[in-house]
Write a protein that binds this DNA or RNA. Structure first.
Lengths: 182, 182
DNA sequence: CTCGGTTATGCAACTCGTTGCAAAAGGGTC
DNA sequence: GACCCTTTTGCAACGAGTTGCATAACCGAG
């Protein structure tokens, strides 16, 4: 139930149309709450119906015509309440860890290539995060919002760093095992 | 599409009934691929229909009566093929990071309690993983399967450790901000 | 001025996971 | 032996996310 709040956050940062939101989700918010344009349009409709956001009056309501939304006071209140809500961390569901476990039963044939591929992907993502850090958060910007966004970014960086080091370790391990067999 | 393979892996490690599987998912496999008993029963039905597993002949097929399954050769082949399949890492979707970002817009009121709660949960989980490591994987066991399961466990440990250190950092940051305002 | 590409919004169908509940069998207790 | 609790299996409905496609406006090229 977090998608509506992801959208409220994005709109509170800057009023946008559905497509603009989609693009921002591809770049920024989507790094920790991804969503497709479909989900976004559907949710914008629901949020408008509930009176949490509204279409800016300038935008006519025809199809194919850009429609900008902004957050209403009720939406801001909803978001404020949600921030303090308790929600347990979702249990991990990671197919790669599962593959390694399955490899213990049927052998690790071909898994090393997949591990290397993931390693490359995570290195890319880490590089992107670090570029964003340099570009968007120079140390002189220090408002509350900047500090919190930097904190979230450090979360992303930490996660990617973890995966990179685990994948390194995994590759070493699997090469050793494979070497002993082949 | 990994649930069937999670079940195949579990059954290959040891033939089980639906309820036993449910319990093993709560303890072991479920740490990185969680599933409810509902999903498991449904999937057992599908896997049997496809001829990848079968009910052990001893078990009569009535409701409320235990029914044990084992993996058939076709199931093992399917699992072997799946291990080498390519699958991109799923984009992160983390409500807590989203809350921190939202706090940048509407203020961090009450969020610190939630961060502390998560910190405690992750510390618990880490302790559990470390206990499992000591109990199930003493260093003298060194078969391929043991090494790979230990590798997966180290993944879990690394993830929990990452969250613990990020949450520590986040709490410090938010206390500083809050201190400057109150 | 019409044709094709781009921008923008949206519907419908599907899969996967979740939640609440029901039903059959077995075992213990009074 | 009637009652109730536990174990085990299962159905049905729902909600969130995904995929494929449709529709409408706009804009530039020829």
């Amino acid at each position: 139930m977090s998608l509506p709040h992801a959208i409220l956050t994005a709109l509170a940062e800057k009023p946008s149309s559905g497509l603009e939101l989609t693009r921002r989700f591809d770049k920024s918010i989507g790094y920790f709450w991804s969503a497709t344009h479909q989900q976004i349009y559907r949710e914008l409709g629901r949020l408008e119906e509930k009176g949490l956001i509204r279409a800016l009056p300038s935008a006519r309501p025809t199809r194919g015509q850009k429609k900008e939304y902004e957050v209403l006071p009720a939406g801001r209140a909803e978001l404020t309440a949600w921030v303090a809500e308790a929600e347990d961390p979702k249990p991990v569901r990671d197919a790669l860890l599962l593959r390694v476990r399955a490899a213990g039963v049927v052998g690790a044939g071909g898994l090393d290539a997949e591990l290397r591929r993931h390693l490359a992907l995570h290195r890319e993502q880490l590089a992107e995060y670090e570029a964003i850090g340099k570009r968007d958060f120079p140390p002189e910007r220090d408002a509350e919002q900047d500090r919190l966004r930097r904190l979230v970014l450090r979360g992303g960086i930490g996660l990617e760093s973890f995966w990179i080091s685990w994948l390194d370790e995994a590759l070493t391990e699997i090469e050793e095992i494979g070497g002993g067999r082949a």
